[in-house]
Design a binder for these strands. Structure first.
Lengths: 241, 241
DNA sequence: CACTCCTCTCTTGGATCCAATCGTAAGCAT
DNA sequence: ATGCTTACGATTGGATCCAAGAGAGGAGTG
């Protein structure tokens, strides 16, 4: 539709990373909202978009299917899943537990420098989202990345790769350009988000395992509630057919 | 190789569940050990085995790849992943947390009848694995299924589908015919396993949330330790080339 | 005798072809 | 006019074809 992006250009290095690249790119397009919730993914269209044949596209779609991001109906093609609010709450309850574990594990491993990194990332996220609120034209996905960075950092500090992967699996189930929007549009949400992050960092810095876990758990649950609420209001209207 | 299983026979009902069926069947063969750790999965062989062409096989393999059960190397085919012991420990730490959450959630939802079901499943598992220890000829995967059933029941009682799925994702990463073997071969392990399950049930019955979570967490960690230990001893020898 | 390079083969990867299926809509009958 | 049937268009699903990469083995040379 837009133009032939020529998937081969990007990372042509190691043989058949092509399928994984395709899956990654399609996932990104869904995450950023470029491909909206409920949209149909026609293989032929994607194929011509990326300048490849349908074969690797089909395999990429299978990957996204097992990830739970899209739904493949028998002979009717694939659609971007429209998460039900209760699904979001369920998933974020799991994610809360996992991130709490990550925070708890991080307490005994985090360094002074990493604490500074966290504070920097949090501040940066606050600033960029505030800037995006002022000037909607600068709608870079920077604040989204910075928001994620905070959580990504902690989960990586936890030193458990499986934990990181599991959290990521949950996150990549829901198109989350949405949650970034929340932080941008609503100043109160932005402020609360910042403060919650700060409290988590404080607990980490103080070496208070239980507190770090508790703050993180509550923070994630709250974020999940907001995301669920967003879907509740818009889920019936967003998907175009 | 063995014979053309004719994948179409099983569940030919709804259009293209074929790929999912194939993935499921291949996964089962890996889980049961019919396809051993480290074995190569040649597409042509699988295709003729199941009586289909390579195309759906390739898509099925992609699903297993994202699940993490197999590893697909660029032009060298797919192999069943040989989990490193530290991966097992990491994963089981995550699983322990998740199952602890499941147990905690189950406390307020479990019914008297379900408690009886749990006790029945536990007893049955103990008996079948004891029987398998006496008579290795009756090496049905029954004890394996009963072992899983205990955990599956609790996770389903927890009433969080995402939680159940996440736990299952972790479990289906490791071929686990192994862990069943442990319970069968070693009488002490079998007895301990039974007792640990009983303590979990007791906590559930008593409505003691913290205790249920704690017992479950320790139980899973212990199981993970045993599984990791098994891999530690055999990982270098099992895979055939 | 060892090392390098070349070729040959085996397997995977991408493209293409044809069959199967779903949705739609036109046509027919009541 | 409404309901049912049927035919067509569009899209996916499976099979097949050809190209490309990786490994093994052998020949040739230092």
């Amino acid at each position: 539709m837009t133009q032939t992006t020529d998937a081969l250009t990007s990372s042509n290095k190691s043989g058949s990373a092509l399928v994984d690249d395709l899956a990654s790119q399609i996932r990104d397009r869904i995450m950023t909202g470029e491909i909206p919730i409920g949209a149909q993914l026609r293989q032929a269209e994607l194929a011509s978009n990326f300048g490849v044949s349908r074969t690797p596209i089909r395999e990429a779609l299978r990957q996204l299917q097992t990830g739970g991001l899209i739904e493949v109906l028998p002979h009717r093609g694939a659609v971007v899943r429209v998460p039900a609010p209760w699904e979001v709450r369920e998933s974020y309850e799991v994610r809360a537990e996992l991130e709490a574990l990550a925070a708890a594990r991080a307490v005994s491993r985090i360094t002074r420098a990493q604490i500074d990194d966290l504070r920097g990332a949090n501040k940066e996220m606050f600033d960029t989202s505030a800037a995006a609120a002022q000037d909607p034209a600068s709608d870079t996905p920077a604040h989204q990345q910075n928001n994620d960075l905070f959580h990504t950092l902690i989960s990586s500090i936890s030193g458990n790769a499986r934990l990181t992967k599991t959290i990521d699996d949950i996150n990549t189930t829901f198109p989350r350009n949405v949650s970034a929007q929340l932080v941008v549009t609503d100043a109160r949400h932005r402020e609360e988000n910042f403060q919650e992050h700060e409290r988590i960092i404080d607990a980490l810095a103080a070496g208070d395992t239980a507190q770090a876990a508790k703050e993180m758990r509550e923070h994630v649950i709250k974020a999940g509630e907001q995301l669920a609420h967003w879907y509740e209001q818009r889920s019936s209207t967003v998907f175009h057919g």
